[in-house]
Amino acid sequence: MSARIVFLDCNDQLRPVFDAVARADDPPIHVNSTPFASDDLPRLLHGCDICIDDHSYMPSEIVARCGDLRHIVFLGTGPQSYMDVEALRRQGVTVHAIKGYGDTAVAEHAVALMFACARDLARMDRNIRSGAWRPREGVQLKGKRLGIVGLGGIGAEMVRIARGIGMEVLAWNRTPRPDVGPPMAIEDLLKTADVVSLHLALSEETKGFLDGARLAMMKRGAILINTARGALVDEKALADALNDGHIARAGLDVFALEPLRADHPLAKLDNVTLSAHSGFRTYEASATLLGRALDIVRRLAAQRSSP
């Protein structure tokens, strides 16, 4: 049997983008749009050596039963949230991530969450739909301090947008970025920022970065925005800080376990605005993402075919 290439989890939004960026001379790619459980992976990937994965979990012990699989092309920057990259490498499976495709899209989504939190838009929307007319006082962002944690491509876009709307930018990065401003201790940023926006990559060093102690350092009444990775934050400590008002509001696009359950403590709080890990989902970003994914697939397929 010749090796197959499978797009494991192409949803309705990605399918037209995929069709638009695919080329006639691409190697054949089987596109699966049917929902599946992790236990179905050996069946779906039977005879497959290259798979495209759009945020489906890939447990190492199940991937081990996919005997032909050699490459996973992950549609995003953080496969670590969905698979154990190092364990897969030891099993002979290489994970390919794609960086920089959606920096502007994610930054714009973070800003949208920031405005929604500042004006309590989601709660007013819920109130009106339930028949309650309750105007709520908001926060004016011009002149406020935005603390940006992580100055990669997305963080740099946040700097540009925040300065454009008249916010004072505070920034922390694991390596100094003098082009953005003088080095600042994370503790000082948390204590002084009116809004904190997370843009760190997830790693063993950053997992649980914003724990209970650091959340307690935040300025009382501050807003927290997370469009990076859910595991950067201690979710229980965050729920406690939101409950007691130490953190006024949070705008969250990412969670430690996705999809977020309806009974999760964060989903029950009125001062939390939620979105479904969609910060990177614009047509423009998706076209760039899938275009780069197909570039990787073409290269891998060509290597496979070389003598």
Rank of each mutant, 00 (worst) to 15 (best):
T77W: 04
A122L: 11
R70L: 15
P135D: 08
A239F: 08
F18K: 01
L224E: 02
A87H: 15
R43T: 12
V169E: 01
Y283R: 12
P28Y: 12
M83N: 01
I72F: 01
P259E: 09
G150P: 07
R281K: 10
L274T: 00
K268P: 00
L294R: 00
M158N: 03
L210F: 15
V297C: 07
R174K: 07
P42W: 11
G181C: 02
F36R: 15
A105P: 12
V169R: 06
L238V: 07
A116I: 12
L69F: 00
R15G: 04
I62P: 05
V73C: 09
P182D: 09
D39P: 15
F74Q: 11
L88Y: 09
S60Y: 06
C66S: 06
A185L: 12
A213M: 11
R177P: 02
P182V: 13
G102A: 13
V139H: 06
D240P: 11
A24F: 03
L294V: 01
D40M: 09
Q91Y: 09
S306N: 07
V85M: 08
A171H: 02
A301K: 04
P259L: 08
N127Q: 06
D103T: 15
L121N: 04
L290T: 07
R15D: 07
G102E: 12
L121E: 08
G251R: 07
P16K: 05
L88M: 08
E157T: 01
K207Y: 10
I165R: 01
V95C: 11
A20Q: 08
H30T: 13
V297E: 03
A228G: 13
V95A: 14
H277L: 01
L189G: 14
I223H: 00
E284I: 08
V63I: 09
R249V: 02
S286K: 08
I128P: 10
L41H: 08
A250T: 13
P135C: 10
M58Q: 13
D103A: 09
R160G: 03
G150A: 02
N127D: 10
